[in-house]
Design a protein around this nucleic acid. Structure first.
Length: 175
DNA sequence: AACTTTTGACCATAG
DNA sequence: CCTATGGTCAAAAGT
């Protein structure tokens, strides 16, 4: 496990950038999610550091998808690695929408830095749950006037795009 | 051409 | 022992 003596920090930040500990966790607000999806796309809360996405996973609500030995498996759907599942309702890319819970894995751009970040968001939560693992070793982020980074193309992770896939398909969930 | 991002597949661990 | 989930790496595509 993490050799660092630093426990994982869980932050709940809004797309706006305001960081505050509210304490809401099991709150399912479809209205809020719909708003964020139809109005404001979910974006990664800038922490001032640069992160590189190295993985993504969809969890929960995956029971709707089944696997067929021989079919294509995507990590976005499930993880039938060694297990041969049966795909009855495999929507390839569309399956992504099946996942009610999405988890993205980010790693610090600096290899020297062992800082990792995990972003998890739910369909009923407009805010993202960011879990920080480890700590940075390069001092200050872009907030400093020394090594500021003009990251224009970087940090453009469209969480909403991943969840919706851009297919524009409606959310088949009445819950 | 380079870098970044995205998706797929594999591995490891836990229950 | 088998199954499921979590996590990571690699390759490909896009900009």
């Amino acid at each position: 496990m993490a050799s660092t003596s630093q426990p994982p920090t869980t932050y709940e930040g809004n797309e706006g950038g305001e960081r505050g500990h509210h304490g809401d966790e099991e709150e399912q607000q479809q209205g809020a999610w719909a708003e964020a999806a139809g109005g404001q796309p979910l974006v990664m809360p800038e922490d001032g550091y640069q992160w590189k996405k190295y993985g993504q996973k969809f969890i929960k609500n995956i029971q709707k998808i089944r696997y067929v030995d021989g079919s294509k498996r995507c990590m976005s759907i499930c993880r039938p690695a060694n297990t041969l599942w049966k795909i009855l309702v495999l929507i390839t890319k569309g399956a992504r929408r099946c996942g009610a819970l999405c988890r993205s894995y980010f790693r610090c751009r600096d290899k020297r830095c062992g800082a990792k970040k995990k972003v998890e968001w739910q369909p009923g939560d407009p805010n993202l749950r960011v879990v920080y693992d480890g700590a940075h070793q390069h001092g200050s982020p872009s907030s400093n006037g020394g090594g500021q980074d003009a990251d224009g193309a970087a940090n453009r992770y469209d969480l909403s795009t991943q969840y919706f896939g851009g297919a524009g398909a409606p959310t088949p969930q009445t819950q």
